[in-house]
């Protein structure tokens, strides 16, 4: 991978967080911020330094789900132009339709693929919509 983006990841499931920490270690990502829940989400997201190049959101979590977090970020001037991608294990057809309709810039289905994850991040940071549903 070339881009080495700063990432904000919101995930309430401990093992999925560990997976992302491993990915960050393996890919030697410089900045990986992980939130364990979505309490005070917008205020905390806006305080992350440096500004994330990419936001990965789990969908089913509390108090705000992924859709709610997406709309908060979309209204924040700081996150204009930052790709916001769903990272979820819920990828049955209508769930993916919901993600598209809500305006996510892409979706990475769990399980993710550590070996191709860097290339996928490159694509997203370059502004491509990546819908990786079957991995």
């Amino acid at each position: 991978m070339n881009s080495q983006p700063n990432i904000l990841y919101v995930e309430d499931e401990p093992r999925s967080r560990t997976v992302m920490e491993m990915v960050a270690t393996y890919l030697e990502l410089p900045g990986m911020t992980i939130f364990e829940d979505s309490t005070d989400f917008l205020a905390r997201a806006e305080a992350v330094e440096p500004r994330p190049d990419l936001v990965l959101l789990d969908i089913h979590l509390k108090p705000h789900n992924g859709f709610e977090m997406l709309s908060m970020l979309r209204q924040s001037p700081r996150f204009q132009g930052v790709p916001i991608v769903a990272m979820t294990a819920s990828v049955m057809n209508e769930e993916v339709d919901q993600l598209r309709t809500a305006g996510f810039d892409g979706c990475l289905a769990k399980p993710i693929d550590m070996m191709t994850f860097g290339d996928t991040l490159d694509l997203i940071v370059r502004g491509e919509n990546v819908w990786r549903i079957f991995s």
């Binding site: 093992r15 999925s16 560990t18 997976v19 990915v23 979820t88 294990a89 990828v91 769990k110 399980p111």
Partner: peptide, 17 residues
């Protein structure tokens, strides 16, 4: 789908790591 994929995410990537 959600419940089966979540543990597979850990199994596959922990093993890979």
């Amino acid at each position: 789908s959600h419940e089966l994929r979540t543990p597979l995410n850990a199994i596959i990537n922990f093993t890979r790591f």
